[in-house]
């Protein structure tokens, strides 16, 4: 267990997201259980945030205001597909160190900086992929889905590569196939061993009705169910990054269902996507 004194030596850099992955994980673990150090981290963040106080402020930007407000309900702004794929490729070449700002308000997510950066990169690409596919004619949909699945698979490869490059640890990933006659949608799952975290992305999924949500379930070797709720992160894209009480070796089957909220202990909705999972298979 990290001592407070050691933790505090790292905090000025930690709050800027400039520690290496190992230090970040250890400090984040400590902050989760140490409110004093968490307050100290918040205080350093507040101190850093005073630095821009003496920047000269820009003249008003009326066009920018309209742009910001118009972008709120759309896909992640500023992204043509090629740009996003390029960003992911660049991230692959040089992983970002910058902090995910959830670090300030939510201590439980501090250790996710790296994972969320990866997830964001994948979501960017997948989200725009879904947006693009929305413009396709139905006749072209199946062909587009194949291309989308291929793109998702390539992204998954890169995600796995990123995680391996960071932690030199194996990464489990797999896709869930649509059940029955469903043609649309793809669910991709990756496990980041370095932070013991599952990433789930559902692409091109129809919106969940009000009061319902897509739920991702693991069925463990003991027959128990472990669930997490997917959140819409962009039109047509549901995702989550969750620490679940199951490692790849524990999992035998993965299912996505549409559940009325709150979900129960077992799935009640029809299985929409599913797959069998074989241990730590890549």
């Amino acid at each position: 267990m990290m001592k407070c004194a050691i933790c505090r030596e790292q905090l000025e850099e930690f709050v800027l997201g400039q520690c290496d992955a190992e230090t970040t994980a250890v400090v984040a673990d400590h902050l989760r259980i140490c409110p004093d150090c968490q307050r100290e981290a918040d205080a350093w963040a507040d101190a850093w945030a005073t630095l821009p106080d003496d920047l000269p402020m820009p003249a008003k930007l009326p066009k920018l205001r309209g742009r910001v407000l118009a972008a709120l309900d759309g896909p992640i702004p500023g992204g043509e597909r090629a740009e996003l794929v390029r960003r992911l490729a660049e991230a692959n070449a040089e992983p970002t160190r910058s902090a995910t700002p959830e670090t300030t308000p939510a201590p439980s997510t501090r250790e996710r900086q790296w994972s969320l950066a990866l997830a964001a990169s994948v979501l960017l690409a997948l989200g725009v992929g879904a947006w693009w596919s929305g413009h396709m004619q139905r006749d072209a949909r199946r062909r587009d889905l194949v291309a989308e699945q291929r793109a998702a698979s390539q992204l998954a490869e890169r995600l796995g590569g990123l995680i391996r490059a960071k932690g030199a640890t194996p990464t489990t990933r797999f896709d869930l196939a649509p059940v029955g006659q469903r043609e649309n949608g793809l669910v991709h799952v990756a496990w980041d061993r370095a932070v013991n975290q599952w990433h789930v992305f559902a692409v091109d999924a129809p919106p969940a009705p009000a009061g319902s949500a897509y739920c991702f379930w693991f069925v463990t070797a003991a027959g128990e169910y472990v669930a997490t709720v997917l959140e819409e992160t962009a039109p047509g894209v549901m995702a989550t990054a969750a620490t679940l009480p199951a490692k790849p070796s524990d999992v035998r089957r993965a299912v996505v269902t549409l559940e009325k909220l709150p979900p129960g202990e077992r799935p009640r909705g029809e299985a929409l996507w599913e797959t069998a999972v074989v241990g730590d298979a890549q």
Binding site: V15, L16, D42, A45, D46, W48, A49, P52, A99, P101, E102, T103, T104, P105, A106, P107
Partner: peptide
């Protein structure tokens, strides 16, 4: 997901 009780909005937006 933003917990307004923790962290200052100004700090959050600055860091973001």
């Amino acid at each position: 997901r933003f917990d307004a009780r923790r962290g200052r909005c100004r700090t959050y937006l600055t860091m973001l």
